[in-house]
Amino acid sequence: METQSIVSLSDVTKTYRQGRVQITALDGVSLEVPQGDFLALAGPSGSGKTTLLNLIGGLDRADSGSIRLNGNDLGAMSESELAGMRLEQVGFVFQSYNLIPVLSAEENVEYVMLLQGVAARERREKARAILDDVGLEGMYDRRPAELSGGQQQRVAVARAVVSGPSIVLADEPTANLDSATGRALMDMMRSMNEAKGVTFVFSTHDRMVMDYAGRLIRIRDGRVAGDERREGEAES
């Protein structure tokens, strides 16, 4: 039985201008991401991984080609519609500066639900449950500055998945973590993928992180250089 695609990219290109130089970040990328994928975008710095994640998440617009998320053409959406789409359907985990510094761990997790209009009590219950899931029980009231890098990334993952998005996009989520903490974070993300069916797309150039991926797409010079299924390979 064919799994339905959450993300569908067709011949997507994106160029940036830096002064007088035009840089091609993506050059005719086509890609399908089925629901439940645990997909790694691998490639060296500057290969276009982050650009690809930004385009899938509606943070940026493609120059040409089409990007569909749950069947909706992102290119046809207004900025406001894109913001609404990000709010309801996409969870983000960034490499750094992921949390709002003036909010506690619990408030950070609640924040997206607040924007969604979820009632206060439900927000609180869900936030605490997901923080417990990611191993941050009893740290609800800590501000980001009072958490380690790994704990901060766990809060970010909790926030990304708490409202049940269609897809979680993580841009080098372990880049600022030591290998043990990075491994623990990947374990946690994979268990969420397996237990809850959350679709993850993450970028990395770390071999350890690639090993976790159920599917590995190699990006080189803005093109898809390889796409391999790696069912059963990922091990903690």
Partner: peptide, 16 residues
């Protein structure tokens, strides 16, 4: 600036 970027990425509209 990055914080405003984060808020927007999370789905906050400019009005917010």
């Amino acid at each position: 600036v990055r914080e405003f970027g984060l808020l927007k990425a999370l789905g906050m509209r400019p009005r917010g």
